[in-house]
């Protein structure tokens, strides 16, 4: 059976970001469909089989969150994974995008490597619908009950795109939660949303690898400096 090339829809009012997204999507071997106005969205979804939507959060008029809610209300489109794209990594925006059903978050300016790795992972992961609902349930539950994972999770290592936690119990892959680990408040980084990517048994612990979403360039700089400091401390 010949598999058709997957279409990735990008909605962004910024021409520069659309062009950049187009180039990266082409390199991934997918077909980019680019639109600048949210008013063109429904017609584009009706005319094309879309595998994933990349949606700008900060648009004039209809915001990305409004568009996200609109898509999630339509039964035939609600299962299309949506990745939010924004230059504003305010954690409140990240929280609300995720609580309304976005699966991930990319901070502008688009870094080809980060964009490619996130989109590829989402396109290749064929999460069954049941599991998708289960993840949504977990997100809602976490939002309602404010589960404090830092009570039992220790930070094992931290990089620019993710961190590893040492936890006494396993965490489900796909679970998204907000960390209020002291490290983030010390570095003045507002609770970044973390998504469990893998969970491996290590001695009596589980090593849980999480990707961090919605970090701004200045947050990344702080983490880089923090890591450099750790490395220099270890060396001395």
């Amino acid at each position: 059976m010949i598999e058709s090339i997957k279409n990735i829809l990008v909605l962004d009012d910024n021409k520069n970001d659309l062009l950049m997204a187009k180039f990266v999507i082409l390199r991934m071997g997918f077909n980019p469909i680019l639109i600048e106005k949210s008013s063109d969205l429904i017609a584009t979804l009706q005319m094309n089989q879309i595998s994933l939507i990349v949606l700008d959060l900060d648009m004039p008029g209809f915001s990305g969150i409004d568009v996200l809610k609109k898509i999630k209300r339509v039964p035939s489109y609600k299962n299309i994974p949506i990745v939010m794209l924004t230059g504003n990594s305010d954690s409140a925006n990240v929280k609300s995008a995720i609580s309304f059903g976005a699966v991930d978050y990319i901070v502008k300016p688009i870094d080809p490597m980060i964009f490619e790795s996130k989109i590829k992972k989402l396109i290749q992961t064929n999460v069954p619908a049941v599991k998708k609902n289960w993840i949504e349930y977990e997100i809602k539950r976490a939002k309602d009950t404010e589960i404090k994972l830092n009570v039992f999770a220790n930070l094992y290592s931290i990089g620019e795109m993710g961190l590893t936690l040492k936890v006494h119990q396993s965490l489900p892959v796909g679970l998204t939660f907000f960390s209020d680990a002291p490290l983030f408040s010390q570095l003045e980084i507002k609770q970044p949303p973390l998504k469990v990517e893998s969970c491996k048994q290590y001695e009596e612990y589980c090593l849980v690898q999480c990707s961090m979403m919605g970090l701004s360039e200045s947050d990344l700089k702080k983490l880089r400096l923090y890591n450099q400091l750790l490395m220099s401390k270890e060396a001395s």
Binding site: D13, N14, N16, D17, D58, N88, K108, P109, I110
Partner: peptide
């Protein structure tokens, strides 16, 4: 604020870090 937000993105893409930070600062 909205105009400088537009300008910011392409500066970052092209490695104009100081211009990007200035735009971010104003925003």
């Amino acid at each position: 604020k909205s105009t400088v937000h537009k300008l910011k993105s392409s500066c970052g893409t092209l490695g104009l870090n100081r211009l990007h930070s200035l735009c971010d600062g104003l925003e």
